[in-house]
Design a protein around this nucleic acid. Structure first.
Length: 570
DNA sequence: AACTCGATTCAA
DNA sequence: GATATTGAATCGAGTT
């Protein structure tokens, strides 16, 4: 029998707390909400220990926010197996076309911000606290209280159906919550970061360390060169405005100072300028300040914001985890006796499109390891670059240029796949919403957007409406692919975590997931287990596709390599 | 002093 | 080639 353990803060007044009242409570219930044992009271910081003991019942832990609760359990050295995140689930249910209609959905949709409170009419009357007159008492907030969480949990379960759509939605909710567990665990572990290696590469690129606020030696040298070449003795090359002005005065006709535009220009200033920009970026984004701030005791520990992107991709906080430049990846090094297993899904999004659209021709092209070569051989005269350009253009909504010109050819070769993204774009342009395979909704168009569409009364307004419609079309076009790819990645990681834990249960330390980025994962693994983990990574990818789509003729290959440092991967 | 916004560059 | 999705972070420069 499935059991659920609801963890709630025990909302008590200040005097009660000082008198030694419980800080949290745990209620164990079955799927119908029936209580299975008396409330467990938690005192002080005893939560991790109690959770760890109750884990023997293998319940699904219900939290208002895994992100808020799980780190303190991890910090105490414990982990949990399964969980349900009420906040993340609310966010999914609010936008999903698969949520069953009813009071709870109505309430969710009436709250534009993430819900933290159960709808009042679904709750028992609030207990009136006796210390309302207290001048210095905190305002009462029952959002984390047990009855509230229990009601929300049961209401959420009630609007997930048992048909195909309900099953998909249920899988999405389980995967999202598993993702939240994994995110917290990865933050806890951290990416192994060799500070000495990083410092050395900074010295190589920038010169010896100087105090904050002083320009590093190699940058200063280049700045001097730039000032001489441009005859602008006071130039601060860190200011795009100053730089633009100085370059214009030197007779270089440009309108911006973006690196990729500068590469086109022939002028003696370009080479040192590009060199300056490159190391300036390193110094400001991943220099000494970054190391001091974000790497502690050999670990980079960014926070992951699960579901932080509308498409279901993760966002991150702290240290720019979504953009670790290749330049510094040699500093990501396994501890002694360990290795990194770095894996990524090969051309995930077009494969997802093949699965979504049931396009057997595209599935055929995806049969091999290299999907773009498959497309190239099927209709682009073996020209892989063109095939890739066309495919990306279809998924992003390119209309002009090379990519736009290749579209008719792509559409005639893969009518179902291209037809699907075009349908999604059309939906978006009319203000409708679209959804991922598992039912994550894109959200309806904003009222402001609708207003702009309706107005369109002048030439100018009409142009703007057109442009915004197309822009929203590109968003929904990409949404169906990106969001479903994110779901595949969640399932992949979830399956992998399950297998790693099975190993751990048998007393074998298979290492930990330490990093995730859209379609790429990194594990920190005891060297002796590396081959086995690589196996599990492949197995999990296969299992994820099966879990998501069932048996379909689309492959989802992953590449997994065993390396000592991150720069050795691909 | 604290905030916001645009420009830029990095990632998938 | 020049074009299209989603993000984070820093800086300068302007605002409150």
């Amino acid at each position: 029998m499935q059991q659920f353990a609801i963890v709630a803060t025990h909302a008590v007044s200040q005097p009660e707390q000082e008198a030694g009242a419980a800080s949290a409570v745990i209620q164990l219930i079955d799927a119908h909400g029936k209580e299975l044992m008396p409330l467990v009271q938690i005192y002080g910081n005893d939560l991790p220990r109690v959770v760890s003991e109750l884990e023997a019942h293998s319940p699904r832990w219900v939290f208002d926010s895994i992100h808020e609760w799980y780190p303190r359990i991890l910090a105490a050295g414990h982990t949990i197996n399964k969980a349900h995140d009420l906040g993340l689930t609310d966010n999914i249910l609010r936008n999903s076309p698969y949520s069953l209609p009813g009071d709870y959905l109505t309430v969710l949709r009436s709250q534009p911000d993430p819900a933290t409170l159960a709808p009042a009419h679904l709750l028992p009357p609030a207990r009136v606290s006796e210390d309302q007159g207290e001048l210095f008492s905190e305002p009462k907030d029952d959002s984390g209280a047990l009855e509230n969480l229990r009601t929300r949990f049961l209401a959420q379960r009630a609007i997930v159906g048992t048909d195909e759509r309900g099953k998909r939605l249920g899988l999405l909710i389980a995967a999202e919550s598993a993702g939240a567990l994994i995110g917290a665990e990865m933050t806890h572990e951290g990416v192994p970061w060799d500070v000495a290696v990083h410092q050395q590469l900074l010295i190589d690129a920038l010169g010896p360390r100087v105090p904050a606020g002083v320009r590093p030696p190699h940058m200063e040298n280049l700045a001097t060169q730039l000032r001489e070449i441009l005859r602008a003795p006071a130039l601060n090359p860190d200011s795009p405005q100053e730089l633009l002005r100085a370059m214009n005065q030197a007779g270089i006709t440009i309108t911006n100072t973006r690196a990729w535009e500068l590469t086109e220009i022939k002028h003696p200033v370009i080479e040192p300028l590009l060199a300056y920009k490159k190391i300036a970026r390193l110094a400001s984004a991943n220099g000494y300040a970054w190391l001091d701030r974000w790497v502690n005791q050999g670990r980079f520990q960014p926070e992951y914001v699960v579901g932080g992107v509308i498409t279901g991709r993760w966002a991150s906080r702290g240290g720019g985890a979504l953009q670790i430049p290749h330049q510094v990846r040699s500093a990501v090094r396994a501890d002694h006796g360990k290795v990194l297993v770095v894996a990524d899904a090969a051309q995930l999004e077009p494969r997802v499109l093949a699965a979504l659209s049931r396009d057997t021709a595209l599935a055929g092209a995806a049969r091999g390891k290299d999907l773009y070569q498959g497309i190239a051989d099927a209709g682009f005269g073996g020209d892989r670059a063109h095939a890739k350009l066309a495919m990306l253009g279809a998924m992003y909504g390119a209309t002009t240029g090379e990519s736009g010109r290749l579209m008719p050819k792509l559409k005639s070769t893969y009518p179902r796949a291209v037809g699907l993204v075009e349908w999604a774009a059309q939906q978006g342009e009319t203000g409708a919403s679209v959804a991922s395979f598992l039912g994550r909704g894109s959200g309806a168009a904003s009222e402001e957007w609708m207003r702009v569409q309706k107005r369109a009364d002048s030439e100018e307004a009409s142009r703007r409406a057109q442009s915004e419609a197309r822009s929203r079309g590109r968003f929904t076009r990409n949404f169906i692919v990106q969001s479903t790819a994110a779901e595949w990645a969640l399932c992949w990681m979830g399956e992998l975590r399950r297998r790693l834990r099975l190993g751990a249960a048998e007393g074998i330390d298979l290492g930990q997931l330490v990093f995730f980025l859209h379609d790429e994962i990194m594990l920190h693994v005891p060297a002796a287990q590396a081959e086995r983990v690589v196996q599990l990574v492949h197995e999990s990818a296969h299992a994820a596709a099966l879990l998501l789509f069932g048996t379909i003729p689309v492959d989802f290959p992953v590449t997994a390599v065993i390396v000592q440092s991150y720069d050795q991967a691909k």
